[in-house]
Simulated assay, not measured.
Amino acid sequence: MLNQLATALLRYTDRCPGPSPYSTQLEGVFILRSDQPKPPTLRSASPALCIVAEGAKWASFGGERLEYRAGQALVIGVQTPSRGQVFEASPAKPCLVLLLQLDLAMIRAVANEMAFAPVPSGDASRGVFVADFDGPLADCALRIVRLLDTPEAATILQPMIMREIGYWLLAGPNGAEVAKLASIQSPSHKLARAVDNLRTNYAQPMRVEDLAKIAQLSESAFHRQFKAFTGLPPLQYQKQLRLLEARRLLLSQSISVQAAAFEVGYESPSQFSREYARMFGAAPKKELAHVQGIGEAA
């Protein structure tokens, strides 16, 4: 089944113009292909399944690094900044990844319909883990990719297959972890509400006290559980969100470094430039000049 999935992804990406990642006609379905190892990149992760059909990747969330390779999937149940890298790929055997956006409300609905749904654990552990993706799950992934050839059928069939994926995730060895991410009664769900609030208001001054109230925790417990859940302390989480958004503004819009700093909530452009350089390896003006130079040369 895994070989069939890799063949289907390879065939699809061979027809796609431009570089990876590839958007598809199906909502929430993306394909990543790398013909060689790539340097680490920073991004903001959202709830998703990152299924590796061939090759290998790693992703780090805070101080924890998770490796996943062919036959495995990175299950992301929290929105958080992350760093990742393709480390096993070649032209003969490219790294092929099927990314499916994950609807936690749908998984919760499936769990409610199960006669013997897994019981979520009571702790608020990390909202990211690696799971084997074989058997029925691999079959579901292959059927999703095959829908790319018949997008007119996707409106009806894709939601059904995603519900099936939700079922097999809940019924599998990681069912308690999946149930914990989806349950509105779990500590993870309450933390996720605080995370959503911080993501929405990342440019505003942060009050840990207010976020702790949303999560229904004391400030000390909130700080500890927030870091366990996202991999980052609240202040560092907010800082990385600000810098990721500032980088997007700088590279995609005609905006000055100072304007980008103010837009994401910095009061000091010099502090913004220092923290930007520490996170991305180059000062914003230098990176912007480099990108503009490439554009002019092209």
Rank of each mutant, 00 (worst) to 15 (best):
115 A>V: 12
290 H>K: 14
199 R>F: 05
144 I>Q: 00
283 A>V: 08
176 A>I: 05
166 G>S: 09
94 P>N: 09
31 I>E: 01
229 F>M: 07
138 A>L: 13
171 A>Q: 11
75 V>N: 04
113 E>A: 07
171 A>Y: 02
135 G>E: 04
145 V>K: 05
23 S>N: 11
111 A>G: 07
176 A>H: 09
24 T>E: 03
167 Y>S: 06
195 V>I: 15
212 A>M: 06
124 A>L: 02
37 P>Q: 09
3 N>G: 09
130 V>F: 03
192 A>R: 14
244 L>E: 14
222 F>M: 02
194 A>E: 08
241 L>S: 09
45 A>M: 09
87 F>L: 12
5 L>H: 01
67 E>F: 13
52 V>C: 14
195 V>S: 03
272 F>D: 07
39 P>G: 13
260 A>V: 11
213 K>I: 05
197 N>F: 14
244 L>W: 03
129 F>Y: 11
104 L>F: 10
249 L>Y: 02
92 A>C: 01
67 E>R: 15
96 L>N: 04
275 E>M: 01
9 L>G: 00
21 P>T: 10
210 D>A: 13
160 M>E: 12
132 D>K: 10
227 K>Q: 15
51 I>R: 00
16 C>M: 15
138 A>C: 15
145 V>I: 14
15 R>G: 10
155 T>A: 14
149 D>V: 04
160 M>Y: 12
84 G>E: 13
117 A>M: 01
162 M>Y: 02
60 S>T: 13
134 D>S: 15
229 F>L: 10
209 E>S: 15
167 Y>M: 07
296 E>L: 12
252 S>R: 10
158 Q>M: 10
46 S>F: 13
19 P>F: 13
97 V>F: 03
59 A>T: 06
34 S>I: 06
63 G>Y: 06
259 A>C: 04
18 G>P: 09
18 G>F: 10
177 E>Y: 07
102 L>P: 01
193 R>T: 08
77 G>Q: 03
163 R>N: 11
68 Y>P: 01
140 C>T: 02
64 E>H: 13
203 A>N: 08
267 E>F: 08
